[in-house]
Design a protein around this nucleic acid. Structure first.
Lengths: 238, 238
DNA sequence: CTCTATTTTCGTACACTGTACGAGAATAGA
DNA sequence: TCTATTCTCGTACAGTGTACGAAAATAGAG
């Protein structure tokens, strides 16, 4: 099952999409594959960002007509879901739970962060609710196992994982915004001037003090694990 | 300062946008106001969601030609920033810090959540980085004051506030997605069937167990404060 | 008053988006 | 060979943000 596959799943029903039928052994033979189309879309997003992923540009990369894509995914939203699950296939198999669930969760979050840094469009793509595909589910399975020693019940473990993922996505999105702001200095310099002006107006003493603090020698990694530790410490308690 | 505003701010420079010039006392008199346009856009988003906010539909509501909007905001992205700061004006003045910074932060987060529930498009609008307008800055100022007793330095307090806001936005987005999923039962029933099928395949024992847990009698409020407490507990520690 | 500079209004136009439709090509089984 | 089925993809359409520029309105100068 889960044929990597050709067309045939023409519904948005997740069951049709992910466990789609492999039977159609009649009619014209597919010229492309869902895999190829998804990969092309991912490559495009990696290279030029999520907004570059248009049906036309994906078709161009694949060498297909635009409308042919619709034989493999019923609409663009679904293609995004395919993309998310596609890159989730890169998530390395986590080691078996060590018993130290905090350490295990830290490792899981680091893995997620690495993936998101490799595919900077991923946090944005995750911001709308998605149906988990097989790769996502496999990772979820391992995360739930890691959460078992917390003593939380099933629902709470699902919630904790969602919470963790949302946190990582949010943090990485912030990280990416920071670093890409550094790459367009005009905009961020203007913003800094604006904030400085506000701080100097006398009505924002707290902001003024916060902005006059010494520069931050902290690496993104350090900030990430600091926040991560805080969150994880809280997860186990009920 | 911060004239509510006629046109004149034609740059995306935040200084021009928020502290824009009030001088232009020549030329044709503006027929509308930035306030009116922003309010119309907010009303539209409240009623029909963020994707209904198009320049054409906003102009229609205001009674202006489409291109006239560009005299008040240089582009749509900026209009979204104006919308965010506009509704931030509804944030009630927080009481003076009580000394119990955890309680103060809880109150602040609750205020943010209330605002986001009143304007369900707000979490999505916050998901891209925005320059804080005057209303946002006023609220930030109070939040920084509430964080003072933590002993964190300025930079860390800014980070903590960003963290808190991101958390609230993420959580409310999740809440909204849940409740709107309940309103389209076809989709969510199909999703439930799919997950049940996956859980029954024998390869996802953890998921199977998590899904078979007893139903959740927890109100969204209870879940929110549980997660909130966890996060806040972690914020103070360095 | 007229003249000019300035500012706002907004119709038209353009490039771009996702995708509905349907004609044609290719295939498998009868 | 005929028919049902499936995929391919050109064309078309409604919708998007916004560039451009002509017309209208205003303020101050002469």
């Amino acid at each position: 099952m889960t044929r990597d596959g050709g067309p045939g799943a023409t519904g948005v029903d997740p069951q049709q999409l992910w466990l789609g039928p492999a039977q159609p052994r009649r009619g014209r033979r597919p010229a492309f594959s869902r895999e190829a189309i998804t990969s092309a879309a991912v490559a495009l997003a990696d290279a030029e960002g999520l907004e570059a992923v248009t049906m036309r540009r994906v078709a161009e990369r694949v060498g297909a007509g635009v409308m042919s894509l619709y034989s493999y995914a019923p609409d663009k939203e679904t293609l995004l879901e395919l993309m998310v699950d596609h890159v989730s296939g890169e998530l390395p198999t986590t080691p078996a739970p060590t018993g130290d669930w905090r350490a295990d969760l830290r490792a899981i979050a680091q893995i997620q962060r690495d993936l998101m840094l490799r595919h900077p469009w991923l946090p944005a793509a995750l911001s709308t609710r998605r149906v988990p595909g097989p790769n996502t589910l496999a990772f979820l399975e391992r995360a739930l196992a890691a959460l078992r020693p917390t003593g939380l019940d099933g629902t709470a473990r699902l919630e904790a994982f969602a919470q963790l993922t949302a946190f990582v996505a949010g943090h990485v999105a912030h990280e990416i915004a920071q670093s890409s702001a550094a790459r367009s200095p005009d905009r961020s310099a203007a913003e800094a001037r604006y904030l400085a002006a506000v701080a100097a107006d006398g009505h924002h003493p707290e902001l003024a003090e916060a902005l006059s603090a010494p520069g931050r020698p902290l690496t993104p990694e350090a900030t990430f694990s600091r926040f991560l530790n805080r969150l994880i410490d809280g997860l186990g308690t009920d």
